[in-house]
Design a protein around this nucleic acid. Sequence first.
DNA 1: CGCGACGTTGATTTGCCTCAACGATTGTGG
DNA 2: CCACAATCGTTGAGGCAAATCAACGTCGCG
Lengths: 193, 193
Amino acid sequence: MNSCNELKEHINRFVRLNDNEFEQLLGYVKPVSARKKQNLHEAGKVCKSNFFVRKGCLRLFFINDKGVEQTIQFALENWWLSDYTSFSSQQTSLFYIQAVEKSEVVAINFPAQEKMLQQFPQMERYFRLIHQRAHAASQYRLKGLFSQTREKIYHDFCKQYPAFVQRIPQYLLASFLGFTPEYLSEIRGKRIS
Amino acid sequence: MNSCNELKEHINRFVRLNDNEFEQLLGYVKPVSARKKQNLHEAGKVCKSNFFVRKGCLRLFFINDKGVEQTIQFALENWWLSDYTSFSSQQTSLFYIQAVEKSEVVAINFPAQEKMLQQFPQMERYFRLIHQRAHAASQYRLKGLFSQTREKIYHDFCKQYPAFVQRIPQYLLASFLGFTPEYLSEIRGKRIS
DNA sequence: CGCGACGTTGATTTGCCTCAACGATTGTGG
DNA sequence: CCACAATCGTTGAGGCAAATCAACGTCGCG
């Protein structure tokens, strides 16, 4: 567990927590390793944990009426991810959480998080900032999706997150941007030599 | 300002704040009245305030490449709304905030909110819960938008928020669901006697 | 090596947009 | 209190962006 420096450093970017406090905080969380494509949570169950990505990448997705996977969001290093409806109400979820790559994450379940927040009230501020940032990101995600054409959506996304586009397979990018892998391939075929 | 009971009651749903504390908290905020279609914030400026809706309804939108307004989110009574990217970084915004109806809101600007959070740390928890809920709502909003057809998006939305569909004009609903007023009208024409 | 996962390409189809014109409703000033 | 304008919803014809379906090439991995 001394390997959770990523989390420690991330917390210290936003609030003060000394070494001793952080050691105690670690008592509330659980390290989890996930291989590529492993599900950390599945639809139909309560989403028990809030996940912090130390290494790798997770995604939140659901399966639509036609059986096609639709990706709601990705979480790269230093992002938290959960189905927050299910997590905070402890009701069954409609979403899946899956590792896009081999990943190292930290999981905290709901009762543990509540106790942790009681013991360390400054963590309320930390999570307030985390959720505020995530909320802001969602607003921009929606703006991106409302771009006029799918072609523009794709090019805008590439411009904004070039490294990320390199990193994930195309069919996942398609499921995130809301179109078919075939059409994404067609767009990519244009222009570029 | 004794008319801010809505805010007081809302805060007390999540955290404890006594009458005296609430009176002090009111020193940080500013009541604002908005008539229908009045802009409380405009693209190109810094989004100075975080808004709490006491009565009425606000919306966050932007204008796309073709000059069409696209609504990102609505805020009914007891919801907070802002462009959180702009608000928290104090950079210029790409969004507008407009009153859908005649509305009574409470505005708090960024420095005031920071001071208020310092004075009342329990408000960090309040806003943590507010943003967590908003983040959860965004996840479900995206799920809705990824429904297979526009027709299904509309019917699902009507089923989930029947009162809201009654309350707002159709062209705003169209701009929220991501399609044209004409097509929305066509969908409504089907089925119903 | 051989299989499965992933990306590509092309033919065909369709959901939804565009544009235009026309009622209905609201509200506003004379 | 009425006339006129603006706003909003509806309808229909035509067109296009993107989906669907199918087949094939390629790469990485067991």
